[in-house]
């Protein structure tokens, strides 16, 4: 297969960027999308040209590092799939594919397709934890947790923090990301003590980072590689209202 690629190149955070044309030759249908880019880069490297910068690490869909918008869709055309797990058999010979970085005010471009997502870390730092120091815990079976509650918490905890939800949202809202963490912890007995301070602190932090509001269109849910539903956002909103009322 041969593909025409239009790839976003940008030298640095303040430099202007543009789409540049590349061709990917002899693409095998068994390649992953990122392996296709590796091959394009290898071609550039032996010619002494600057390789296209993009982020990836585990390449099995769990670390949340890879972050490409393919033909306008965060993580590309396969539902519930990170771009590292997208395979070239999904594309046709001769097709033109556009590759861009996550685009959001709170995720400035570092270079080419690489963005800075440290705002997510700061949101977690603001309250996305249970305040317990190492060493003080009681026996793990002392607090019983019903299986369905634990399973629901796990569904939310499955978030990989990739930021596709923000990239897909026209408001660049971080609501799905935040609500997954807030749901995870507020469903469990261990998260009750800080339930209300957590939700306010995290939302305040997200606002100060420049993430937008939620207008309930569900674009985030549609691109989430872990298929985390927007019902989490409803739960977060409820928690937030409760927190405000309890003040």
């Amino acid at each position: 297969m041969r593909l025409n690629l239009k790839i976003w190149r940008q030298a640095g955070p303040t430099a202007p960027g543009r789409l540049e044309d590349y061709t990917a030759d002899s693409v095998s249908p068994d390649m992953s999308f990122l392996e296709m880019l590796d091959v394009v880069n290898e071609g550039l490297i032996v010619k002494g040209k600057d390789a296209i910068a993009f982020d990836s690490d585990c390449r099995e869909g769990i670390c949340g590092t890879c972050s490409l918008v393919i033909d306008g869709v965060a993580h590309g055309p396969d539902r519930g799939t990170t771009v590292c797990q997208l395979h070239m058999r999904r594309f046709k010979d001769g097709e033109t594919v556009t590759i861009e970085p996550w685009r959001a005010k709170a995720f400035p471009v570092v270079k080419d397709l690489v963005v800075d997502r440290s705002a997510f870390d700061r949101i977690i730092a603001a309250g996305g934890f249970v305040s317990i120091n190492a060493g003080g815990a009681q026996d793990a079976n002392n607090i019983l947790i019903p299986k369905d509650v634990c399973d629901a918490a796990m569904d939310s905890a499955a978030c990989i923090g990739c930021g596709a939800c923000v990239a897909a949202c026209k408001n660049a809202s971080a609501h799905l990301f935040m609500s997954a963490k807030i749901s995870h912890l507020s469903l469990l007995p261990q998260g009750q003590q800080e339930r209300y301070t957590r939700v306010t602190a995290m939302i305040d932090q997200a606002d100060s980072e420049g993430f937008g509001s939620c207008s309930n269109e569900g674009e985030c849910e549609a691109v989430c590689p872990k298929e985390i539903p927007i019902s989490n956002i409803a739960r977060m909103t409820r928690e937030y209202v409760m927190a405000r009322l309890s003040k």
């Binding site: 249970v130 815990a137 009681q138 793990a140 607090i143 019903p146 634990c150 912890l185 469990l188 261990q190």
Partner: peptide, 15 residues
């Protein structure tokens, strides 16, 4: 295990 459960790690549970 005690530490992780206290942090909110959702280990699998029985009914």
């Amino acid at each position: 295990i005690d530490q992780c459960v206290a942090q909110g790690v959702p280990f699998a549970r029985e009914y």
